[in-house]
Nucleic acid binder design. Structure first.
Lengths: 140, 140
DNA sequence: ACAAACATGATCTACTTAGTCAAGTATGGT
DNA sequence: ACCATACTTGACTAAGTAGATCATGTTTGT
Protein backbone atom coordinates (compact mmCIF):
# COMPACT_ATOMS: atom_id res chain seq x y z
CA UNK A 1 0.00 0.00 0.00
CA UNK A 2 2.82 2.40 0.77
CA UNK A 3 5.55 2.33 -1.83
CA UNK A 4 9.23 2.83 -1.20
CA UNK A 5 9.01 6.12 -3.08
CA UNK A 6 6.53 7.55 -0.59
CA UNK A 7 8.54 6.24 2.33
CA UNK A 8 11.77 7.75 1.04
CA UNK A 9 10.05 11.03 0.22
CA UNK A 10 8.81 11.28 3.78
CA UNK A 11 12.23 10.52 5.24
CA UNK A 12 13.78 13.19 3.06
CA UNK A 13 11.18 15.73 4.09
CA UNK A 14 11.67 14.84 7.74
CA UNK A 15 15.35 15.45 7.37
CA UNK A 16 14.82 18.80 5.69
CA UNK A 17 12.23 19.79 8.27
CA UNK A 18 14.52 18.94 11.15
CA UNK A 19 17.23 21.13 9.69
CA UNK A 20 14.96 23.92 8.57
CA UNK A 21 16.42 26.44 11.00
CA UNK A 22 19.85 26.06 9.43
CA UNK A 23 19.80 28.10 6.23
CA UNK A 24 22.45 26.13 4.35
CA UNK A 25 20.93 23.64 1.92
CA UNK A 26 21.20 19.91 2.56
CA UNK A 27 22.96 17.86 -0.10
CA UNK A 28 21.19 14.81 -1.51
CA UNK A 29 24.20 12.78 -0.49
CA UNK A 30 23.73 13.62 3.17
CA UNK A 31 20.16 12.38 3.09
CA UNK A 32 20.88 9.15 1.25
CA UNK A 33 23.76 8.35 3.57
CA UNK A 34 21.84 8.99 6.74
CA UNK A 35 18.70 7.12 5.74
CA UNK A 36 20.13 4.37 3.58
CA UNK A 37 18.30 5.47 0.49
CA UNK A 38 19.76 4.08 -2.74
CA UNK A 39 21.86 6.79 -4.34
CA UNK A 40 20.35 8.40 -7.43
CA UNK A 41 16.91 7.12 -6.55
CA UNK A 42 16.26 9.98 -4.19
CA UNK A 43 16.96 12.46 -6.94
CA UNK A 44 13.97 11.36 -8.93
CA UNK A 45 11.88 11.29 -5.77
CA UNK A 46 12.73 14.89 -4.97
CA UNK A 47 11.41 16.02 -8.34
CA UNK A 48 7.70 15.84 -7.51
CA UNK A 49 8.42 17.37 -4.13
CA UNK A 50 9.93 20.35 -5.85
CA UNK A 51 7.04 20.43 -8.33
CA UNK A 52 4.67 20.56 -5.38
CA UNK A 53 6.54 23.59 -4.10
CA UNK A 54 7.56 21.94 -0.86
CA UNK A 55 11.30 22.05 -1.38
CA UNK A 56 13.68 24.39 -3.15
CA UNK A 57 16.89 23.29 -4.76
CA UNK A 58 20.14 25.21 -4.82
CA UNK A 59 22.42 24.25 -7.67
CA UNK A 60 26.15 24.37 -7.90
CA UNK A 61 28.80 23.71 -5.34
CA UNK A 62 27.47 23.64 -1.77
CA UNK A 63 24.04 23.26 -3.25
CA UNK A 64 21.30 21.02 -2.01
CA UNK A 65 17.70 21.13 -0.88
CA UNK A 66 15.77 23.23 1.57
CA UNK A 67 12.23 23.01 2.87
CA UNK A 68 10.23 25.92 1.49
CA UNK A 69 6.96 25.61 3.38
CA UNK A 70 5.86 25.32 6.97
CA UNK A 71 6.03 21.69 8.15
CA UNK A 72 2.55 21.99 9.57
CA UNK A 73 1.17 22.60 6.10
CA UNK A 74 2.00 19.16 4.74
CA UNK A 75 0.37 15.90 5.75
CA UNK A 76 1.51 12.37 5.07
CA UNK A 77 -1.46 12.02 2.76
CA UNK A 78 -0.29 15.02 0.75
CA UNK A 79 3.10 13.42 0.34
CA UNK A 80 1.70 10.06 -0.65
CA UNK A 81 -0.52 11.66 -3.25
CA UNK A 82 2.23 13.84 -4.62
CA UNK A 83 4.28 10.76 -5.39
CA UNK A 84 1.61 9.76 -7.86
CA UNK A 85 1.23 6.14 -6.97
CA UNK A 86 -1.11 3.98 -8.94
CA UNK A 87 -4.34 3.08 -7.23
CA UNK A 88 -6.01 0.00 -8.58
CA UNK A 89 -8.96 0.44 -6.31
CA UNK A 90 -11.81 0.75 -8.73
CA UNK A 91 -13.20 -2.56 -9.80
CA UNK A 92 -16.45 -1.38 -11.30
CA UNK A 93 -17.32 -2.34 -14.85
CA UNK A 94 -19.59 -0.30 -17.07
CA UNK A 95 -22.65 -2.22 -15.99
CA UNK A 96 -21.90 -3.09 -12.38
CA UNK A 97 -24.15 -5.39 -10.43
CA UNK A 98 -25.62 -4.43 -7.09
CA UNK A 99 -23.05 -6.67 -5.46
CA UNK A 100 -20.19 -4.96 -7.21
CA UNK A 101 -21.42 -1.54 -6.19
CA UNK A 102 -21.92 -2.49 -2.58
CA UNK A 103 -18.49 -4.05 -2.55
CA UNK A 104 -16.86 -1.06 -4.11
CA UNK A 105 -18.40 1.10 -1.42
CA UNK A 106 -16.75 -1.13 1.14
CA UNK A 107 -13.37 -0.73 -0.50
CA UNK A 108 -13.89 3.00 -0.64
CA UNK A 109 -14.77 3.09 3.04
CA UNK A 110 -11.63 1.19 3.96
CA UNK A 111 -9.54 3.42 1.77
CA UNK A 112 -11.06 6.53 3.25
CA UNK A 113 -10.28 5.30 6.74
CA UNK A 114 -6.59 5.01 6.04
CA UNK A 115 -6.57 8.32 4.22
CA UNK A 116 -8.12 9.92 7.28
CA UNK A 117 -5.25 8.68 9.40
CA UNK A 118 -2.63 9.94 7.01
CA UNK A 119 -4.29 13.30 6.56
CA UNK A 120 -4.22 13.74 10.31
CA UNK A 121 -0.47 13.42 10.49
CA UNK A 122 1.38 16.59 9.57
CA UNK A 123 5.05 16.80 8.83
CA UNK A 124 5.48 18.85 12.00
CA UNK A 125 3.80 16.12 14.04
CA UNK A 126 6.15 13.54 12.66
CA UNK A 127 9.23 15.63 13.41
CA UNK A 128 7.99 16.06 16.95
CA UNK A 129 7.50 12.30 17.27
CA UNK A 130 11.04 11.70 16.11
CA UNK A 131 12.41 14.06 18.74
CA UNK A 132 10.36 12.76 21.66
CA UNK A 133 11.05 9.08 21.11
CA UNK A 134 8.31 6.73 20.11
CA UNK A 135 7.40 4.90 23.30
CA UNK A 136 4.21 6.64 24.31
CA UNK A 137 2.77 7.92 21.09
CA UNK A 138 1.03 4.93 19.65
CA UNK A 139 -1.98 3.41 21.19
CA UNK A 140 -2.63 0.51 18.88
CA UNK B 1 -4.86 -1.85 -2.50
CA UNK B 2 -7.65 -4.30 -3.28
CA UNK B 3 -6.74 -6.73 -6.04
CA UNK B 4 -9.12 -8.12 -8.63
CA UNK B 5 -8.71 -11.53 -6.99
CA UNK B 6 -10.14 -10.30 -3.70
CA UNK B 7 -12.91 -8.45 -5.47
CA UNK B 8 -13.89 -11.50 -7.49
CA UNK B 9 -13.66 -13.75 -4.46
CA UNK B 10 -16.09 -11.52 -2.61
CA UNK B 11 -18.52 -11.43 -5.50
CA UNK B 12 -18.45 -15.21 -5.72
CA UNK B 13 -19.06 -15.56 -2.00
CA UNK B 14 -21.91 -13.06 -2.17
CA UNK B 15 -23.51 -15.12 -4.88
CA UNK B 16 -23.15 -18.32 -2.94
CA UNK B 17 -24.42 -16.68 0.22
CA UNK B 18 -27.50 -15.33 -1.54
CA UNK B 19 -28.34 -18.76 -2.80
CA UNK B 20 -27.47 -20.64 0.36
CA UNK B 21 -31.04 -21.72 1.06
CA UNK B 22 -31.16 -23.57 -2.23
CA UNK B 23 -29.32 -26.83 -1.71
CA UNK B 24 -28.24 -27.39 -5.32
CA UNK B 25 -24.67 -26.31 -5.94
CA UNK B 26 -23.90 -23.27 -8.07
CA UNK B 27 -21.77 -23.87 -11.16
CA UNK B 28 -18.69 -21.73 -11.71
CA UNK B 29 -20.12 -20.80 -15.06
CA UNK B 30 -23.19 -19.22 -13.50
CA UNK B 31 -21.05 -16.99 -11.32
CA UNK B 32 -18.68 -15.87 -14.05
CA UNK B 33 -21.58 -15.09 -16.38
CA UNK B 34 -23.51 -13.10 -13.85
CA UNK B 35 -20.59 -11.09 -12.53
CA UNK B 36 -18.46 -10.76 -15.64
CA UNK B 37 -15.54 -12.59 -14.16
CA UNK B 38 -13.06 -13.90 -16.74
CA UNK B 39 -13.74 -17.59 -17.20
CA UNK B 40 -11.14 -19.91 -15.72
CA UNK B 41 -9.82 -17.16 -13.49
CA UNK B 42 -12.51 -17.73 -10.91
CA UNK B 43 -11.52 -21.35 -10.66
CA UNK B 44 -8.16 -20.50 -9.22
CA UNK B 45 -9.76 -17.94 -6.95
CA UNK B 46 -12.11 -20.51 -5.50
CA UNK B 47 -9.22 -22.72 -4.48
CA UNK B 48 -8.15 -20.72 -1.40
CA UNK B 49 -11.78 -20.28 -0.47
CA UNK B 50 -12.18 -24.01 -0.37
CA UNK B 51 -8.91 -24.36 1.51
CA UNK B 52 -10.27 -21.93 4.09
CA UNK B 53 -13.27 -24.19 4.50
CA UNK B 54 -15.75 -21.56 3.42
CA UNK B 55 -17.04 -23.34 0.34
CA UNK B 56 -17.57 -26.95 -0.64
CA UNK B 57 -17.31 -28.23 -4.14
CA UNK B 58 -19.44 -30.91 -5.75
CA UNK B 59 -17.84 -32.65 -8.69
CA UNK B 60 -19.35 -34.21 -11.70
CA UNK B 61 -22.40 -33.32 -13.69
CA UNK B 62 -24.65 -30.79 -11.96
CA UNK B 63 -21.74 -30.03 -9.68
CA UNK B 64 -20.67 -26.66 -8.44
CA UNK B 65 -20.00 -24.78 -5.26
CA UNK B 66 -21.90 -24.27 -2.05
CA UNK B 67 -21.27 -22.05 0.94
CA UNK B 68 -20.34 -24.22 3.89
CA UNK B 69 -20.28 -21.73 6.73
CA UNK B 70 -22.57 -19.13 8.19
CA UNK B 71 -22.25 -15.84 6.29
CA UNK B 72 -21.94 -13.96 9.55
CA UNK B 73 -18.73 -15.82 10.30
CA UNK B 74 -16.72 -14.32 7.46
CA UNK B 75 -15.61 -10.72 7.17
CA UNK B 76 -14.25 -8.90 4.15
CA UNK B 77 -10.90 -8.79 5.91
CA UNK B 78 -10.93 -12.57 6.24
CA UNK B 79 -11.52 -12.89 2.52
CA UNK B 80 -8.83 -10.40 1.60
CA UNK B 81 -6.31 -12.19 3.77
CA UNK B 82 -7.28 -15.61 2.48
CA UNK B 83 -6.44 -14.50 -1.03
CA UNK B 84 -2.85 -14.14 0.07
CA UNK B 85 -2.04 -10.80 -1.42
CA UNK B 86 1.43 -9.42 -1.14
CA UNK B 87 1.85 -6.60 1.33
CA UNK B 88 4.80 -4.36 0.70
CA UNK B 89 4.11 -2.41 3.82
CA UNK B 90 7.24 -2.90 5.82
CA UNK B 91 9.96 -0.48 4.94
CA UNK B 92 12.21 -0.98 7.93
CA UNK B 93 15.85 -1.88 7.41
CA UNK B 94 17.89 -3.81 9.93
CA UNK B 95 19.12 -0.64 11.56
CA UNK B 96 16.19 1.73 11.21
CA UNK B 97 16.49 5.36 12.15
CA UNK B 98 14.09 7.05 14.53
CA UNK B 99 12.45 8.68 11.54
CA UNK B 100 11.94 5.37 9.79
CA UNK B 101 10.41 3.84 12.89
CA UNK B 102 8.03 6.73 13.49
CA UNK B 103 7.05 6.64 9.84
CA UNK B 104 6.46 2.93 9.85
CA UNK B 105 4.17 3.39 12.83
CA UNK B 106 2.19 5.86 10.77
CA UNK B 107 1.85 3.39 7.89
CA UNK B 108 0.81 0.73 10.37
CA UNK B 109 -1.83 3.02 11.86
CA UNK B 110 -3.27 3.76 8.45
CA UNK B 111 -3.25 0.13 7.54
CA UNK B 112 -4.92 -0.81 10.77
CA UNK B 113 -7.66 1.74 10.16
CA UNK B 114 -8.63 0.18 6.87
CA UNK B 115 -8.40 -3.31 8.29
CA UNK B 116 -10.77 -2.24 11.05
CA UNK B 117 -13.32 -1.20 8.45
CA UNK B 118 -13.03 -4.45 6.54
CA UNK B 119 -13.16 -6.59 9.66
CA UNK B 120 -16.40 -4.86 10.59
CA UNK B 121 -18.12 -5.95 7.41
CA UNK B 122 -19.39 -9.50 7.50
CA UNK B 123 -20.54 -11.45 4.50
CA UNK B 124 -24.06 -11.39 5.90
CA UNK B 125 -23.94 -7.60 6.17
CA UNK B 126 -22.95 -7.30 2.56
CA UNK B 127 -25.70 -9.61 1.38
CA UNK B 128 -28.17 -7.51 3.31
CA UNK B 129 -26.83 -4.36 1.69
CA UNK B 130 -27.27 -5.89 -1.73
CA UNK B 131 -30.88 -6.70 -1.01
CA UNK B 132 -31.84 -3.37 0.52
CA UNK B 133 -30.35 -1.19 -2.20
CA UNK B 134 -27.41 1.06 -1.47
CA UNK B 135 -28.93 4.51 -1.10
CA UNK B 136 -28.95 4.96 2.64
CA UNK B 137 -26.15 2.78 3.85
CA UNK B 138 -23.08 4.89 3.37
CA UNK B 139 -22.41 8.04 5.28
CA UNK B 140 -19.17 9.17 3.72
C1' DA C 1 39.51 26.11 -14.97
C1' DC C 2 37.90 22.75 -11.89
C1' DA C 3 35.21 20.29 -8.70
C1' DA C 4 30.94 19.81 -6.28
C1' DA C 5 26.26 19.23 -6.73
C1' DC C 6 21.74 19.47 -8.96
C1' DA C 7 18.72 18.32 -13.65
C1' DT C 8 16.93 15.37 -16.94
C1' DG C 9 15.82 11.54 -19.66
C1' DA C 10 16.65 6.94 -20.96
C1' DT C 11 17.07 2.42 -19.61
C1' DC C 12 17.14 -2.04 -17.13
C1' DT C 13 15.61 -5.77 -14.17
C1' DA C 14 12.65 -8.27 -11.10
C1' DC C 15 8.30 -9.06 -9.42
C1' DT C 16 3.32 -9.17 -9.13
C1' DT C 17 -1.02 -9.45 -11.04
C1' DA C 18 -4.22 -10.93 -14.34
C1' DG C 19 -5.48 -14.22 -17.23
C1' DT C 20 -5.03 -18.63 -20.22
C1' DC C 21 -4.39 -23.50 -21.36
C1' DA C 22 -4.20 -28.37 -21.21
C1' DA C 23 -4.63 -32.76 -19.27
C1' DG C 24 -6.93 -35.24 -15.68
C1' DT C 25 -10.83 -36.87 -12.59
C1' DA C 26 -15.46 -37.45 -10.86
C1' DT C 27 -20.54 -37.80 -11.49
C1' DG C 28 -25.16 -38.18 -13.49
C1' DG C 29 -28.05 -39.44 -17.37
C1' DT C 30 -29.06 -42.47 -21.20
C1' DA D 1 -20.85 -48.77 -20.98
C1' DC D 2 -20.63 -44.25 -22.75
C1' DC D 3 -20.73 -39.49 -22.90
C1' DA D 4 -21.45 -34.79 -21.54
C1' DT D 5 -20.90 -31.86 -17.76
C1' DA D 6 -18.22 -29.82 -14.40
C1' DC D 7 -14.63 -29.55 -10.95
C1' DT D 8 -8.94 -30.26 -10.12
C1' DT D 9 -4.42 -29.31 -10.80
C1' DG D 10 -0.33 -27.39 -12.43
C1' DA D 11 2.13 -25.03 -15.75
C1' DC D 12 2.40 -21.12 -18.49
C1' DT D 13 2.15 -16.37 -20.72
C1' DA D 14 1.57 -11.32 -20.95
C1' DA D 15 1.56 -6.78 -19.31
C1' DG D 16 2.44 -3.38 -16.15
C1' DT D 17 4.71 -1.29 -12.12
C1' DA D 18 8.22 -0.47 -8.77
C1' DG D 19 12.77 -0.04 -7.79
C1' DA D 20 17.01 1.27 -9.19
C1' DT D 21 20.88 2.77 -12.26
C1' DC D 22 23.42 5.40 -15.74
C1' DA D 23 24.95 8.92 -18.82
C1' DT D 24 24.99 13.44 -19.97
C1' DG D 25 24.24 18.19 -19.19
C1' DT D 26 24.09 22.50 -16.35
C1' DT D 27 25.00 25.57 -12.55
C1' DT D 28 27.89 27.65 -9.07
C1' DG D 29 31.70 28.39 -5.56
C1' DT D 30 36.78 28.53 -5.13
Amino acid sequence: MISARVHYACLALFELAMRADDTTPVAVREITDKHNIPGPFLVQILRPLRAAGWVQSVRGSHGGYRLSVDPSQITLLDIAEAMGCQDRNSHLSETPTKSAIALQHAWDEANEASRAVLSGLRLSDMVERCHHGEATMFYI
